[in-house]
Each structure stands twice: as structure tokens, then as C-alpha cells.
Design a protein around this nucleic acid. Structure first.
Length: 807
DNA sequence: CGGCCCCGCGTTTTT
DNA sequence: CGCGGGGCCG
């Protein structure tokens, strides 16, 4: 036991040792939250709490896995395995299967991912003859999702609960309730639940069946919840029910400052008012930051202090002072990327850092492109953590649909996707007719295929025969999937269905790549089966059932079924990257994806208004606070150094956009910034020397007013009232076409230091080409040079920004 | 029935 | 700009 408690600081120790009653642990970034959670569980076990009576819930599989590993190291694999630990969704799926009959679902229900759900919603919209230009499937789905999170089921929805109908009418979409009702009916008749259903039906189950509540809640003496600030209403209510019985041994851990999923229904209020829900709750604060330098922690503190309604806490770095946060200004996103890459290369030299010590974070996935290009150009290995791009590939989804259909023949989404792939002569007409038959009977497409009166829906005998042949094949596959090995079943199905050959036969370059993906999917099934078998064997050895892993025979291994694999995959996230994939690579990801991770060196790119914080249009105070928390998360990922960057113009949706530097850059107290923003930075374009709004190639001599261009911009900065430019978060410069500006000559351009230039030097500019220095004026760092360019005439450049080198 | 083209659209997304 | 979906044509 002493070993469990040994390395904890006093605050952590208190949080671990308090074993009875409700408690809230507010854990600042990098304060050893996971350590406390795992130590606490280990401590409970050491104090005699049976592991199976501990329920530990996380949001991600990764978090659950890491915690399990760490606990196993403390109390042994054998004990650790008995803990009920997993994601909200995976744990609740288990309960729901157990009590499936109560809520009227087959115990074998399967899970729709978001794509499945949206496409099912789309189908419902079609079936109701609604215009999908008005009723956009994605929008309708998110509306339904919201309602489910609020536990508003179709009937109350229809009857006006929580103002949903009213809201819909306001948005001129009064029929959403009908889509909702139909969608629920469809899911039910398909034996399918979406992600929100898992939480919704869990609530319904606990409400409807006191026996189920008693049974489930009675299993656990201790409940632990990770990332509590991200729970939504549905999760919150489940937790409240499970912990309803005194002494309410529920321990929630989180950080209100890191609540960044409000847009998905997370309620920061849950953590803020935990002590109201449980008046005798004890509050523990973990404020010692072991991750980041003082500079980073202090900077982040000053930023987050701008938010209201926080749980008061004062995070203090236990590390060294550290260096100030750097700010990189650039003209375009390409330049920004270039500078980031250069900084990485420099840092690797000076600090002997490795590629994997770096993360480049951004607000939106689309920002990765420019970064990728520059990284590739410099041959730097990188890894993009973006959505499950592999499982989003059409060919992978096709094969997955076959597998899903084999596990659940009533999965209409899967059915539609593969019924005519490869071509079986079952076209739209046939599927529509089948659809009618299914709708009329309130049954799935698969079941409808066997209706004796199918021909009365306008199908010819030949069409019916083709449909039934397909269904027979799938029926056979389903029988095999029942109790068969996942990999064997998948292989057999892939070849029998013809989908394997379908992809193999395409010998175009893209076709081969698609086939490779299919192969990779099948391999990953094998990998999964082997991993499960490995875990099983390890458990046998650990339990002393066998003395050596090699003694376990193949026939003794448990069958890993296709359904297991599919469920596993559907609950996978983009943080779930194989460890060897991350080796020695620069990490690129959104700030959201970075939550929970840490890196020695962090770059946050795109620090611009309208991007970060995003949503300039209708940015409410609440939205802004969430953006600020998001930036807080970004800063606190760094252990040693942070570099922030922004670009003056950025290509967005095919248009050039100019935005002011992010207000967040001003919200970090300037003493933590190496080169804080000055007022003129918030003014428009101070690119090189041109006055703002200037348009290249607008005909005539582009050099009117060239010499006084920069002073002009500065004068404006000093003008009273001008500060409002950055207060109003609208674009500072209209997107006048800057497309015809002189091209960047060399993207790899490395400028010479500004003090190296002298009158008479022959120089070369990144964009203007060759020229001669006529005059140097001003003092560092405001050093200016008057340069006569061969092609563009005389210009006054601020050397700090100009990309110039000697020839 | 399949392929091609045009149009529309475009935060973040642990499950 | 780059993608995906729908519609139209062969």
C-alpha cells in the first residue's frame, strides 16, 4: 500500500485517501490527474474493495487502457482485470445488452456510427417526401442528437417539450419531429443504436426498471469518472442515478478550464455545480503542474483568468522558469508553415530534440495542408491525427458494410450500401420497391426480401430472385458469423460476396490502393483476433492456470467474433493510433485532439480572429469562453516551449482571407511573450510595405505612394479610435484579390539577418527578386531599408518582416 | 446501370 | 480550392 501512496504530493495523497462519500477532484492541466485516479483505485483495492465493485468511466478507450495498465502495475493484472473500467459507451452497451428485453431491443443490437446515422436520417427524410435542401440530413441529425442528449424522446418532442418544436418552426423546419419519430422507429426495427441512443436508452432503462437500476447500481460500491467537465446531460443523469444511494461514493475528476465539447452537448455546469448535487461533496484541488515550465503555466493562467464562472484555482508550475512564448508573424499560411518547420529544425539542433518532441496544433483540420507541404519539402516525418480517415474510405466502408450486415441482417444502412456492390442487377428501382415493402410491414429490408407478396410492390420475379440470392448469401454469412472466428468469417464473406475480387480486379493505380486498403482492413481483423488471444493467454499465465504461454493450444483459445471486432472499431477514435506509428514523427492535430496529450515543443498555428477564436459571425460570450478554454488546452500541452503563429492572409474555401491576429495573443500577459503584439500588428496588412487594401496588378504603376507606405500604416495605428479595428472581430481587410501579386520565387527562402545589410548591397527578395540597397534607416528592431528593385522599382521595407538575402 | 460532370458547400467531434 | 452527392446522359 505504501508503494501506492509513495510518490504522491500532499494534495494528491488527500484525494487518494478519502474513500467515502462524494468527491470532486479539480485537476489542473498536468497536475497528475491520471496518477491520482489510478492510485485511488489501487488504494481502494488494497483496502479490501473488490475490484469488480469499482466502476470507472472514461471518455476514450485510450484513457481507459492507460489507466488499466497503470493499475495493473500497482495491484497486478489479475485484480486490474476485474475492475469495471471502460468508456461510458462501452460499459453502458454491456448493461443494455444484459437488459435489452426491458427496452425492447435484441441483445445483439449493433451500433451506428455518425455516418450511418446521418444516412439513415437522410433516408427517413426521403421517405417522408421532405425536401432535403430544407431538411439537411446533417442538421436534422444534430437536432435529433441534441434532443436525445436532453432525453427528449419523439413523443415529448412532438408535444413541444423543451421548446424543440418551437425552435424547429422558427427555423422553418417544422417537420423534424416526424423525421425523429421515423428514425427511431427505423433504428428499432433494424436492431441498431446510435451513440446517443446508448446514453438515452440507458436512462430509459434505469427509469423504467427499478430492478435494473437496483441490479446495476447495486454492483458498485465506488464510481469514478474521468473528464467530468465533458459529461452531457444524459451522462450526468445516469451517474446521478447510479450514485443515488448513500454514502454516494462517486468521485469525479476534471478541469472546468478544459471543457471544450460544449458544442457537442457537454455541460460545463455539471462540474461547476457538482457540490449542489451532492451537498456533502468534498472538493480537492490539484494545482501543482508537473508538466510545463513556469512561463507556460503563468501565461496560461493569465489567459484563462479572462473567463468567468470558473472553479477558483491557482496552478503553479513545479518546473523550471523556461523560455518565453514566441510569436511568429507571417504573410501567408505557406510562410507560416515554413517558419514553423524552420523553427523545428533549429530546435532539433540546439536542443537535440527528436521529431516526436514536436506537435503542431491548429483549430481546423484544413489547416494541416500547408503544414504538410512544408514538412514534406524538408523531408520531415510527420503524422496527422485526423478523423478515422482509414475507416472513412469508401472501399473500407463497403467491406465494413458487409461485415456489419453479417452481424446484423436488419442493418438497413449496410444493406443498401452493399446490395448492389459488386453489381448484381439490383438497382434503385428494385431497392425502392423493396423499401416500400419493408416500410409497409414495419420490417427491415432483409426481412422484406422474404415476403411472399413481394411482387405486388412492383418487382418482377427475376428481380425478386436476385434479391433473395443476395439475402441467402448474407443469411449464410450471418450464420457463420454467429460463433465463428472474425477473421475467417470476414475472409469467406469478402470472397463469397465478390467484393474482394471486385477491388482486386481494378488494376488502375487508385484501384490498387483501394485494394490495399481492403487488405489492410482484413489484416486489422486478424490483428485484433490475435491481440485478444494474446490478452487471454497472458491472463491464463497471470492467473497461474498455465505455467507458460506456449502451453496454450489453439483450440483452447476463445472465439473472437466479428461482432466484437465491429463494436471495437465503432468505438475507436482518432487518438487511437498504434504506438509505432507515432515513433519519431512530428505530430499534427487539432487542438481538440491534443487534449490529454503532451509534447516538449508545441506550435499553435493560425492564431487569427475568425479562426482561433473561430466563428466570428455570431460569436457569443459563451462560445468565446469555450474557444479560450480550447486555447488554454493548446498552451498547456507544452512541456518546454510554445510558439504561436499567425498569417496575414490565408486561403480559406478557395478565397484569400485576411484576419487580424487573434485577440488571445493579447490576452496572455505580455511579460510571458518574447515578442508581444504591438498595436500596429492589429492594424491591417503590414506586409512588407504596402498600404492596406492594396491590390496587385490593378493596372498602372503599382508604386504610387510606395515610399511612405509603411509610415502611413503606423500613423493609422496611432490614430485615436483605431483600436476598434481589432475589437470588432470582422475581417480587417476585404478579400480584395491579392492573387495576382508577384509569385513567391522560392518557398525555401531563408532570409539573412537584418543587421547584415548595408547601403549598396546587392540583394534578393523572396517576392520582388533582385535589387540594390539604397538606404538603411531606423533602429533595431525597426530597421528599414530603401531598396531599388530591378523589376518593381523603389520600395521601403521593414527588415524585420522582409524576406531578403544577399546575392 | 454506370460513369461523368456540375453544383454546393465548407469549425471543432472523446463515443 | 477540393470534396462528395445528385442528376443526367450514354
Amino acid at each position: 500500500m505504501s508503494e501506492i501512496l509513495r510518490d504522491l504530493n500532499p494534495e494528491q495523497l488527500k484525494a487518494v485517501e478519502c474513500i467515502e462519500g462524494p468527491m470532486l477532484i479539480v485537476a489542473g492541466a498536468g497536475s497528475g490527474k491520471t496518477r491520482v485516479l489510478t492510485s485511488r483505485i489501487a488504494y481502494l483495492i488494497s483496502r479490501g474493495v473488490p475490484p469488480e465493485r469499482i466502476l470507472a468511466l472514461t471518455f476514450t478507450k485510450k484513457a481507459a487502457g492507460e489507466m488499466k495498465d497503470r493499475i495493473a502495475r500497482m495491484v497486478g493484472e489479475r485484480q486490474a482485470r476485474r475492475i469495471q473500467m471502460g468508456t461510458f459507451h462501452s460499459v453502458f452497451i454491456r448493461f443494455l445488452r444484459e437488459f435489452a428485453d426491458v427496452i425492447g431491443f435484441p441483445a445483439t443490437f449493433t451500433i451506428y456510427d455518425t455516418t450511418d446515422s446521418v444516412s439513415a436520417v437522410k433516408n427517413c427524410i426521403k421517405q417522408l417526401s421532405l425536401d432535403d435542401k430544407v431538411y439537411k440530413p446533417k442538421e436534422v441529425y444534430s437536432r435529433i442528437s441534441k434532443a436525445k442528449n436532453d432525453l427528449v424522446t419523439p413523443t415529448p418532442y412532438m408535444n413541444g417539450a423543451e421548446g424543440y418544436r418551437e425552435g424547429d418552426r422558427l427555423h422553418k423546419k417544422p417537420e423534424i419531429y416526424r423525421v425523429y419519430a421515423l428514425y427511431c422507429q427505423m433504428c428499432r426495427q433494424s436492431g441498431v443504436m446510435d451513440f446517443d441512443d446508448i446514453l438515452l436508452y440507458m436512462n430509459i432503462l434505469l427509469k423504467k426498471s427499478p430492478e435494473a437500476l437496483e441490479s446495476i447500481a447495486g454492483r458498485f460500491t465506488h464510481i469514478l469518472v474521468d473528464e467530468y467537465q465533458d459529461t452531457n446531460a444524459a451522462q450526468y443523469l445516469i451517474l446521478k442515478k447510479l450514485a443515488a444511494r448513500p454514502p454516494h461514493n462517486i468521485c469525479v475528476v476534471g478541469d472546468d478550464s478544459q471543457s471544450i465539447y460544449g458544442f457537442r452537448g457537454a455541460q460545463i455546469q455539471n462540474i461547476l455545480s457538482f457540490q449542489k448535487d451532492f451537498p456533502d461533496a468534498r472538493l480537492f484541488r490539484l494545482e501543482r503542474n508537473y508538466r510545463s515550465t513556469q512561463m507556460i503555466v503563468n501565461a496560461a493562467n493569465t489567459l484563462i483568468a479572462k473567463n468567468e464562472g470558473r472553479i477558483p484555482k491557482n496552478c503553479v508550475s513545479m518546473g523550471e522558469a523556461g523560455e518565453k512564448i514566441r510569436l511568429v508573424r507571417s504573410f501567408t499560411e505557406q510562410e507560416e508553415a515554413m517558419q514553423i518547420v524552420s523553427a523545428i529544425i533549429t530546435r532539433m539542433r540546439t536542443d537535440r530534440a527528436e521529431y516526436s518532441d514536436f506537435a503542431i496544433l491548429y483549430r481546423t483540420n484544413s489547416q494541416s495542408r500547408a503544414l504538410e507541404e512544408q514538412l514534406r519539402r524538408r523531408n520531415i516525418p510527420y503524422l496527422i491525427y485526423s478523423g478515422n480517415s482509414f475507416f472513412e474510405r469508401a472501399e473500407v466502408k463497403d467491406v465494413m458494410a458487409y461485415l456489419k450486415l453479417a452481424v446484423n441482417l436488419n442493418d438497413d444502412e449496410a444493406f443498401r450500401r452493399v446490395v448492389n456492390k459488386p453489381a448484381r442487377g439490383i438497382g434503385d428501382t428494385s431497392v425502392s420497391a423493396l423499401s416500400k415493402a419493408a416500410q409497409e410491414g414495419g420490417i427491415s429490408l432483409f426481412r422484406a426480401a422474404y415476403r411472399p407478396d413481394l411482387e405486388s410492390f412492383g418487382l418482377r420475379g427475376a428481380a425478386v430472385a436476385k434479391i433473395r440470392a443476395f439475402c441467402d448469401m448474407m443469411g449464410k454469412a450471418a450464420a457463420e458469423a454467429q460463433g465463428g472466428d472474425a477473421y475467417d468469417v470476414a475472409m469467406t464473406l469478402a470472397s463469397e460476396s465478390g467484393i474482394y475480387l471486385f477491388f482486386k480486379a481494378d488494376d488502375s493505380v487508385e484501384g490498387q490502393s483501394r485494394f490495399q486498403n481492403v487488405q489492410e482492413l482484413l489484416n486489422s481483423i486478424k490483428g485484433y483476433v490475435e491481440e485478444m488471444h494474446g490478452d487471454y493467454v497472458n491472463a491464463l499465465v497471470e492467473d497461474g492456470v498455465v505455467s507458460d504461454a506456449s502451453l496454450v493450444q489453439e483450440k483452447d483459445l476463445p472465439v473472437v467474433q466479428l461482432g466484437d471486432f465491429l463494436e471495437n472499431v465503432s468505438l475507436l477514435s482518432n487518438a487511437d493510433v498504434a504506438e509505432d506509428e507515432t515513433l519519431n514523427k512530428v505530430a499534427l492535430m487539432t487542438v481538440h485532439s491534443a487534449k490529454g496529450l503532451e509534447f516538449p515543443y508545441v506550435f499553435v498555428s493560425g492564431m487569427e480572429e475568425n479562426l482561433f477564436p473561430s466563428g466570428g459571425w455570431m460569436l457569443t460570450e459563451g462560445d468565446l469562453e469555450e474557444e479560450r478554454r480550447l486555447f488554454y488546452v493548446a498552451l498547456t500541452r507544452a512541456k518546454k516551449a510554445v510558439t504561436l503563429s499567425y498569417a496575414e492572409t490565408r486561403m480559406r474555401n478557395g478565397k484569400h482571407e485576411s484576419n487580424a491576429p487573434s485577440r488571445f495573443l493579447r490576452e496572455i500577459a505580455p511579460q510571458y511573450l518574447q515578442n508581444p503584439l504591438r498595436r500596429e500588428d492589429f492594424e491591417a496588412s503590414r506586409e512588407e510595405d504596402e498600404p492596406r487594401g492594396f491590390s496587385w496588378g490593378s493596372g498602372g504603376s503599382p508604386w504610387r505612394g510606395k515610399v511612405d507606405a509603411f509610415p502611413y500604416a503606423r500613423k493609422k495605428a496611432d490614430a485615436p479610435g483605431k483600436a476598434s479595428t481589432f475589437q470588432g472581430s470582422r475581417p480587417v481587410m476585404p478579400s480584395t484579390d491579392r492573387t495576382s501579386k508577384p509569385p513567391v520565387i522560392d518557398a525555401n527562402f531563408v532570409p539573412d539577418p537584418m543587421s547584415s545589410f548595408h547601403v549598396g548591397d546587392r540583394i534578393e527578395h523572396n517576392r520582388f527578386g533582385a535589387g540594390k540597397v539604397l538606404e538603411i534607416s531606423g533602429n533595431i528592431p525597426e530597421l528599414k531599408a530603401r531598396i531599388l528593385f530591378e523589376k518593381y522599382g523603389e520600395k521601403l521595407l521593414l527588415l524585420k518582416y522582409a524576406k531578403i538575402r544577399h546575392i
